[in-house]
Write a protein that binds this DNA or RNA. Sequence first.
DNA 1: AAAAGCAGCAACCGCTTCGAA
DNA 2: TTTCGAAGCGGTTGCTGCTTT
Length: 296
Amino acid sequence: MGCKSSEKPIKPKHRRGLWSPEEDQRLRNYVLKHGHGCWSSVPINAGLQRNGKSCRLRWINYLRPGLKRGMFCEEEEDTILTLHRMLGNKWSQIAQHLPGRTDNEIKNYWHSYLKKKVAKAEEMKAHIKTQYTSSSSDINMDSSSSPKRSAIGVPIYDSVLGHVGKSLKCTDQESVPQTSCDFPGDQANCSSFLPKVLFAEWLSLDHVHGWNNIADSGEGLISRSDAPNSHNPNFQFTPMHGFSSNDGAYGGQFHNMQSHASATEMFNSQFKFEDQFISGDDVCRDLNMNNDVMYI
DNA sequence: AAAAGCAGCAACCGCTTCGAA
DNA sequence: TTTCGAAGCGGTTGCTGCTTT
């Protein structure tokens, strides 16, 4: 920061509005050739009648190489929903976990589509809830099989009915029906099959692909026997690739977690699932955490 | 066929943070 | 320590194209 440009900007009249292809070309050529350096000098040097801020935005949101254009795929949608639930409107942080997507794009997508989808699903869920509470005698609502408990390990918008089946990804091929809960009546069933805890969100790709490293570094996160393999159907990765261990919302925190207490604190401060706000105590009570290793 | 309404997206605005002087 | 300018970020606006009436 603190770019000290020798050329003092002489209050030029800045063009506004949509960018023309020529402007895009100029900016692209300039940045690719020289780098942006100080954004306020970019429009001057590139011969654009825009302000630096506008150039920066145009570059970041549209011209930057590697940007994905077009529809969001299912995985990306899930990731946004999950991260939004955890982080709120931290679009830039969310964008960090979606390579090729910009914060602006994600924000727009949220406002124009996902927000409504979530709201609709919540509405639906509320409706279902009222139906169940009015005829709950045949539904086992004890703590071990209630949707609340099941939801603990699934920081995904399981209420987004369109995603219930997809997001929850019941991975136990043998014992779990391959249903996607297509109709409301399935929701209770489906939740009872949910894997109990999913911590994949806190893992970086390194951790996903390099369990040896974790063990070798003594930075036990999850016991090695629980590493994802075919014998461990409860283990699951969500589509959240790229969670870095030090800049991610949880990566760093989780790795620095030194005790049950701090884990609880983190849960308490960060996790709000659905309309049931589950405390970290609730979660940790069900876990056996020792020496920085979390057994599931 | 035309007007009104709506949705999606790009861009702008204003505030905050950060780093250099 | 303070000041200033640049960058970053999230909220909002406004344009455009599509759909509905």
